[in-house]
């Protein structure tokens, strides 16, 4: 579901839990709504293979398997629920995300030269609307190219979240080329590089 933004995804989930009659906890404020939280928003245009969603079930007898089955029954083919479990880690323990970037053509030399740099300075827009120079090299944990397929592991989470779009636009700028590509987020990791659960 590449064309669904994070906000749209939230709306989709609200309706899905209603439609699937999930015994979900509702917020108790003025504007009551089903409470859930996507761990790391997925950008418009990306696919995701390991997305994490946090929600609270109020019926103790309602099993995790039932939850997954009920959600999948009402969902669309492109959004599939894989597994539900009690939270092991806290959301703030999310540290890295892995992306698979597929280029339309092979640009081995340029891409390898780019990721071999000690420093990769780029401009990032700040919350105040200005821009500041940052070095993204330390935020790139892994960059591995195999043919036209690039695997990236980038820092993720509340602090130092690095979006692959920024990495790629910097790549195109510094290496002076342009390529069509698609992005799939394949995994979310904790600090120890274990799949986040």
């Amino acid at each position: 579901m590449k064309f669904v933004s994070h906000l749209d995804m939230n709306r989709f989930m609200t309706r899905l839990v209603n439609k699937a009659k999930i015994p979900i906890w509702f917020t108790e404020g003025f504007n009551q709504h089903a409470y859930f939280n996507f761990a790391v928003p997925l950008s418009l245009g990306f696919e995701g293979q390991y997305e994490i969603l946090d929600l609270r079930i109020i019926d103790p007898a309602y099993s995790n398997e039932q939850l997954v089955a009920d959600l999948n029954k009402e969902s669309i083919p492109d959004i599939e629920f894989v597994k539900a479990n009690e939270p092991v880690l806290k959301m703030k323990e999310i540290a890295f995300a892995e992306f698979k970037i597929i280029f339309e053509e092979v640009f081995a030399e340029k891409i390898e030269r780019f990721f071999a740099r000690e420093q990769i300075i780029t401009q990032k827009t700040t919350k105040k609307g200005g821009t500041k120079d940052i070095d993204i090299a330390p935020l790139i944990k892994k960059a591995e190219l195999s043919g036209n397929e690039l695997t990236l592991i980038l820092t993720a989470g509340n602090e130092n979240n690095l979006n692959p779009t920024l990495v790629l636009s910097t790549l195109f700028e510094l290496e002076q080329f342009k390529a069509e590509y698609s992005v799939v987020r394949t995994m979310i990791y904790d600090k120890k590089m274990q799949p986040f659960i």
Binding site: F3, D8, L44
Partner: peptide, 15 residues
Amino acid sequence: LLSVQKPGRYSGGEI
């Protein structure tokens, strides 16, 4: 589609 605003207008596949 990704080059235009609100691609969801044209993508279909809704519930």
